[in-house]
Each structure stands twice: as C-alpha cells, then as structure tokens.
C-alpha cells in the first residue's frame, strides 16, 4: 500500500492553476524526490498535501484515506509534516522551545517531553544549543532544528521543501545524510529539491515536473542518467553532471 497518493490534483492561487492534474505515488518507507524548473509546481504539491492549499479537483490520500479537505492541523495529526522552504523557526524562542512546538498538536505535555528527549538523542545540537535563540544559529543548524521539530510528532511522512537551499556544501551534505538516515529508520520522505543531483542520489524514486504535471517518473539514479530530464529541466539534452546544477544563491 502506498503511503501517499495524488490523483489528478488541480490546485493554484487566485484564478490560476499551478498544478494541472498531478498524479504521484510515494511508497511507504521510500524517498521520493521531485525535481523540475522554477514554477513547475513542486512546492505547491507539498502545500496541497499539507492542507495549506485546497485542491480544486483530484484526490489526495494517505494509506487510502482522503486528506484533501483536511485542515493543516488535522493533516499534522495524521502524521504528515511539512518542512517549508524558508526558515520556519521562531527566531526569538530557544532551540528547545522551537522543537517542543513541533509536538504542539499532541496536546500531551508528558508525551512531548518524552519525545523531545528521544529526538535529542538523534540530534545532539538540541542539547548543546538548548537555550540559544533559534535566530542565532547558522543556516545549517537551523535546518537541523527544523528537521528535529518535524520529528516530534513521530511522523510517517515528512515533506521537505528544498532543504539544501542557502546552505554551504558541507552543511548541505550533512542535511542530505540526515535525510537518508531518517529514511533508514522507516520514515517516508517526499523531497522537493532544486539541487537535482543531490536529491536524486538519495532518492529511491524521482519525478520530474514541468508545467504543473509530472512528466517523468523513474528510479532516482535512472533519472540522473536520463537525457529527457535535461530536456525538461534545462531545455536541452545534458550529461549527468549537468543534471545537478548548483542552487542559485
């Protein structure tokens, strides 16, 4: 059974449609990486799944249960978390408070405190920088704390929107290693990434979006070598190396 299934999803802002019939399946326990040019609708998929954007048509289901009409809070309570593209920590709050907020919808303080101790085992930075203001952390540290916060609900699906954006190569490497590590614990990952090479290298499956629809879908490494990716992504056939442009700074 697939964890997440989108079928013919149409969604957008105002009068315009960004997603024009997206169909996509993410298998339980896998890493799915969605790549594509700017404006293809990659991030919009995540917003539609997380309840921030209500689809105009089509269906979204998790483990066979429709979620397209749920509110963000209800989606969260189903174990689906979304780490957005931009920095999403509360800068004036401490690292510990930020992570505790991740378990907010649990409504059970004791459980939240137990969970944060578990999460802190995986992410030592939580204890090391416990009382630091989140806004004083480096970009890589902030992204790590965001990932830790996302794990507070013990999710079954984590959706990451360009987690490497704005990070230096070393921090970027650490983030991708962390994502792979999370997946090895059984967590399903839906990753949207501009850095196609890095994303597809850790992905079990990849999908290439263009014009609001999924144009290609294959095993992650196969996509890296697929010349059609270059045609869709950069407008011309490319070598595998060219398929992974550095993110624009």
């Amino acid at each position: 059974m697939s964890t997440l299934k989108l079928d013919g999803v149409v969604a957008g802002y105002g009068q315009g449609d960004i997603l024009r019939g997206v169909s996509l399946e993410v298998e339980a326990g896998s890493v799915m990486c969605v790549i594509g040019p700017n404006g293809a609708g990659k991030s919009t998929i995540l917003r539609a799944v997380s309840g921030l954007l209500r689809p105009r048509a089509g269906s979204i289901a998790v483990d066979g249960q429709p979620i397209a009409s749920l509110k963000p809070r209800e989606v969260l309570s189903r174990g689906i978390v979304h780490v957005p593209q931009e920095r999403s920590l509360f800068p004036q709050m401490t690292v510990w408070e930020n992570v505790l907020l991740g378990a907010h919808v649990l409504g059970d303080r004791a459980r939240a405190r137990r969970r944060i101790e578990e999460v802190a085992e995986r992410f030592p930075i939580l204890r090391e920088r416990r009382n630091a203001h989140a806004g004083s952390l480096s970009g890589g540290e902030q992204k790590t704390v965001e990932l830790a916060r996302a794990l507070m609900l013990d999710p079954k699906l984590i959706m990451l929107d360009e987690p490497s954006m704005g990070l230096d190569p070393k921090a970027r490497q650490r983030v991708f290693t962390t994502i792979r590590g999370l997946n090895e614990t059984g967590l399903t990952v839906l990753l949207v990434e501009q850095n196609a090479r890095a994303g597809l290298e850790i992905a079990d499956e990849g999908a290439v979006m263009d014009g609001g629809v999924v144009k290609l879908r294959a095993r992650g490494r196969e996509l890296l070598d697929d010349p059609r990716v270059g045609a869709l992504y950069l407008g011309a056939p490319i070598t595998p190396r060219e398929a992974a442009p550095e993110p624009t700074r």
């Binding site: 997380s50 921030l52 957005p84 920095r87």
Partner: peptide, 10 residues
C-alpha cells in the same frame, strides 16, 4: 529576525 514573510507549515 527571519527575513522571509511568515512561512506556513503544518
């Protein structure tokens, strides 16, 4: 302060 406008994430 974060420079981007309120990013919403569930």
């Amino acid at each position: 302060r974060a420079t981007l406008p309120g990013g919403m994430a569930p």
